[in-house]
Design a protein around this nucleic acid. Structure first.
Lengths: 402, 402
DNA sequence: CTATTTCGTCATGGCACTTTACAAATTAGT
DNA sequence: ACTAATTTGTAAAGTGCCATGACGAAATAG
């Protein structure tokens, strides 16, 4: 039948991690948590049959998770079927929470999400951060984080980690913002400016936005391309439910796909990059608008009002996006393409020309282009959820502390 | 009793495979095999310290592998250091072998590779397959496979599986060639035309070529983009040592990246696709040559001889490749770009213009472009090695049969 | 020639899951 | 209403796998 042949897991040679019984236990604890989190209240027996372990084994796993306050026993299920009713288990609402933070060009935001995925606290502060030096911005952010932490702690929750979304490139596996053109930051190590009592993660906002789409989006598949535009145009590729980060963590530079290789030159050194057609500045210029405060809102408003120049500008941007997406779709064969961030607000006017280019150039092999329902909340929610999911991925790591 | 294990190690929700002690054992057997295969003859103690298990545990694992004829005990190592010398272990040269096969446009090839990576048998047959119907071609291929199997069996080896590389699209997790334009095949199920006593894998030749590069290439990283051109232009992306196959298994359609979106129209429905500039036909036309027998050889010969038109054509193709690669590199941030297949023979004349475009458009962020040393052997070797590596990945699956 | 180091193995023990058995709680059937 | 059937959760015994600690074997160092 279907041969297992190709299933090479970790690519290549040599020393992978050893497999010990403790590791096995940890992975099984994680499986129980994920299963309960994903499929609502479930009895021990239901969990057992879902993950393929015996009821007895699941019982001991569940005991441990309940003792760690990661699972709650809700009591007997309403029967309905023959046999003794199971006792419903649910992910605890009073366990650890993930803290997500976002540094935007004109705002700071922090929120807390529990293991069930519920947002338990949230603060947004409008600030013009463009060109401001990092220290005061991060001091303010740290204060907001402390406020949210205090709030959730008083509700009996314990912050398990902090994830920060920034509009710029972050070096892989570090806390360093290599460059964030819209903030004017270069080589800033967030680790030294933020509270150090929480495990810290720093990543690009587009990456967190894509993860939010994966985890929270309605019917989002496990393999998709997420395109978002705030000021630049970013993309994030999710493969098999995992983010593709690239060798240096810089994957997703969609803004500099060549669209018309002979076109206007771009600060990146290239010519005719996507950003020259679909970037915020380019669209504003093509629409004949002055850069102002809420630029995206302005575009959406004018387009909705029927402004010819604006509509033409957005059609052009959509076409450029379509051409760039053609390349990406041909190369990556994603199950879906999702437009997020500012693009989702402008989608009604972008989509027609975008889909025309994409469909025309891929001759029916086109994948559906969908629009994110998360709006501008994606990165913040993705950051917070990434921490919560890290707990689900290794419950023992947190349970030990508790 | 080969389990159809579906080894999805998704990062996300729900029911992954359970972790049992048997699974642990299997994974540790695999680790031992991989370690010995990758790092030459090794003593039990050396393996133990490399993979993090105790000497005692490794001893039992090794015993089992020796009984299965997957490892050989070579005897005491030459000392040199203080202490009792270890007993060298090596991957067996008389265990299972992987059978690789290739259906080319003008040849058929089959080879056998043992667990050490040595090629133990090999047959090539020149045949013009273009436009020939699948049945006779596959009958011939099956005969070659039988010949190679007989040959290795008489040498005491046992074929563990068959992997076939085809120049076309293969539906994910099937044995079906969806379309192979250069052969003129559509929806052909290879499973029903090939010997069924061996576990079968069918995949695109570009994919196998990339895997060969990963496994056999000198200093090939775990994250790279492999571009190969035979008739079309294909690409394969390796991430973390694993092939990115896409939602439907069609990832890597590099030939239809838009390069000059207003350019000549392409059978795919688009305009100005890469294939219109760097595809074999396009290059021959631009060079003013007639399509003939060994077209790539002809191009290389004329270019080497200084033929102006040919050189100009190749410069153009290189530039188009560079533009298309710019997009891919920006999007994927690979550690390297490798040119394989026909491109490696033509590299001397393609590279200058290719690198000029790539470097210019990525402003120093360019990754090195390297040329594969495997030449046209890549796909065949990749196929055979994929079977051999599948054995290393799950020694228990084969050992049970032996 | 002895002390030291390292290797491979054996016996013992602990840990994680399975098997088997059983009591508890519900529905189905008479 | 009462029994049979079914399902759940738990407990006790069993199995498999690796860790620990001890030992003899085989080399080097002094």
């Amino acid at each position: 039948m279907t041969a297992p042949l190709h299933e090479q897991r970790s690519g290549t040679s040599g020393a992978r991690l050893p497999d010990t019984q403790q590791g096995m236990r940890r992975r099984n604890l994680s499986r129980v948590m994920h299963t309960v989190a994903a499929h609502g209240p479930l009895s021990r027996a239901a969990v057992a049959s879902r993950i393929g372990l015996t009821r007895a084994a699941v019982s001991t796993l569940v005991d441990e998770l309940i003792r760690s306050e990661l699972l709650d026993e809700l009591g007997p299920e309403r029967p309905g079927r023959v046999g003794r009713p199971g006792s419903a288990l649910a992910v605890s609402a009073r366990g650890p929470v993930g803290i997500g933070a976002e540094v935007g060009v004109d705002h700071l935001a922090v929120c807390a999400v529990d293991l069930r995925g519920e947002t338990r606290a949230r603060v947004i502060q409008q600030v013009g951060n463009r060109g401001r030096s990092p220290e005061p911005v991060l001091r303010e952010l740290a204060a907001l984080v402390q406020r949210v932490c205090a709030e959730v702690r008083s509700a009996g929750l314990s912050p398990a980690g902090l994830a920060v979304a920034v509009p710029g490139l972050v070096a892989r596996d570090t806390h360093s913002v290599v460059r964030a053109p819209n903030l004017g930051w270069h080589d800033i190590d967030l680790g030294s400016h933020l509270p150090s009592e929480l495990p810290l993660t720093v990543d690009n906002e587009a990456n967190f936005g894509a993860l939010a789409e994966l985890w929270l989006g309605e019917g989002t598949p496990e393999h998709f391309l997420h395109v978002s535009a705030e000021i630049g145009v970013g993309a994030a590729l999710v493969v098999d439910g995992r983010l593709l980060r690239g060798a240096h963590g810089f994957a997703g530079e969609f803004g500099h796909m060549p669209v018309w290789p002979g076109g206007p030159s771009c600060p990146c050194g290239g010519r005719g990059c996507l950003e020259q057609y679909a970037g915020e500045e380019a669209v504003l210029r093509a629409a004949g608008l002055e850069p102002g405060e809420d630029r995206v809102g302005l575009l959406a408003e004018r387009a909705a009002a029927g402004d010819k120049a604006v509509r033409r500008a957005l059609r052009g941007a959509g076409a450029a996006l379509g051409i760039a997406l053609t390349g990406a779709v041909n190369l990556l064969d994603p199950q879906a393409v999702v437009l997020g961030g500012a693009l989702s607000r402008l989608a009604p006017w972008l989509l027609p020309s975008l889909e025309r280019e994409l469909a025309g150039r891929t001759a029916g092999r086109a994948r559906g282009v969908t629009v994110s329902g998360l709006g501008s909340d994606g990165p913040l929610l993705g950051a917070a959820h990434s921490v919560a999911r890290a707990v689900l991925d290794d419950p023992a790591g947190v349970g030990a502390a508790g």
